[in-house]
């Protein structure tokens, strides 16, 4: 099999493998120094293929990226030596209902958990690691978790569990008033300086669980109705505003 894996290095370098083969090749590269050398050399050649596709992105992308980066924590660096990946300690949480240390208002919490356990619509951070469910569990379990909940205008409810320590909040929106496919609900963090978008729900969706990072000095989590895909600034009035006790 080894010779076969070796011939896949080219296809690996241009991402032309399926997931199983990719894993197989990368495992092989970890064990075969000359192969890893060849793979690295091919990657150095391959990336030059992107010389011919350089194109200016829309100017708005810069502000979006810098804004998101401003509230995105960087990963810890690799351990110094080439330790096996499995040796790296990582907080693993079993799936299912996170346990809670804090006695929160039982009714509100039940509502939060019911939605957290359900299917989630959320477009902003779909691919980030650690997994979203782990991050949500971390907020719900944090020692300083606090909860706020308010009925939304037109029906439904918005609940926020937030942790100052983690600088994160879980926002649960349930059964908001029906809106057409051309409108989206958008979530905002409001602080004394103004407001920042904390996420946009898929058009027409009335329920969602959102993970909000980088709370900072936010005093309020607000929800507005916006054109599908969201707006740069909120369209008032708020559908709901949940105050955060600082």
């Amino acid at each position: 099999m080894s010779a076969d894996v070796h011939t896949l290095i080219g296809a690996w370098a241009v991402d032309a493998l399926d997931d199983d083969e990719r894993a197989e090749v990368e495992h092989h590269l970890g064990e075969c120094e000359s192969c890893a050398q060849e793979a690295a050399e091919l990657r150095e050649a391959v990336w030059r293929l992107s010389d011919v596709t350089i194109a200016d992105p829309p100017p708005r992308l810069r502000a979006r990226v810098l804004t998101e980066v401003a509230r995105t924590r960087q990963e810890a660096p690799e351990p110094p030596a080439a330790e096996p990946r499995t040796a790296r300690p990582r907080l693993r949480r079993h799936r299912g209902m996170p346990r809670l240390r804090l006695a929160l208002a039982a009714g509100a919490l039940a509502a939060v958990m019911a939605v957290v356990g359900g299917i989630v619509t959320w477009s902003v951070m779909r691919d980030t690691e650690p997994s979203r469910s782990d991050q949500i569990a971390a907020v719900l379990e944090s020692g300083d978790a606090a909860i706020g909940s308010i009925a939304a205008d037109g029906g439904g409810k918005v609940s926020v569990v937030y942790s100052e320590q983690l600088d994160k909040a879980v926002v649960v929106l349930a059964g908001l008033a029906a809106i057409g496919e051309e409108r989206s609900y958008q979530i905002w963090m409001v602080d004394p300086e103004g407001q920042v978008s904390a996420g946009v729900m898929d058009p027409g969706d009335r329920s969602a669980t959102m993970l909000v990072e980088g709370l900072g000095d936010a005093e309020l989590i607000g929800v507005t109705q916006e054109p599908a895909g969201g707006s740069e600034t909120p369209t008032l009035p708020l559908v709901a505003g949940v105050p955060l006790e600082g």
Binding site: P57, L61, E68, V69, T72, Q74, E75, P77, E78
Partner: peptide, 18 residues
């Protein structure tokens, strides 16, 4: 492309440490 580019650039920030 814009959506994926945004994910990529944020990932570069996040994993530059690696």
């Amino acid at each position: 492309a814009e959506e994926v580019a945004q994910e990529v650039l944020v990932e570069i920030w996040r994993t530059a440490t690696r």
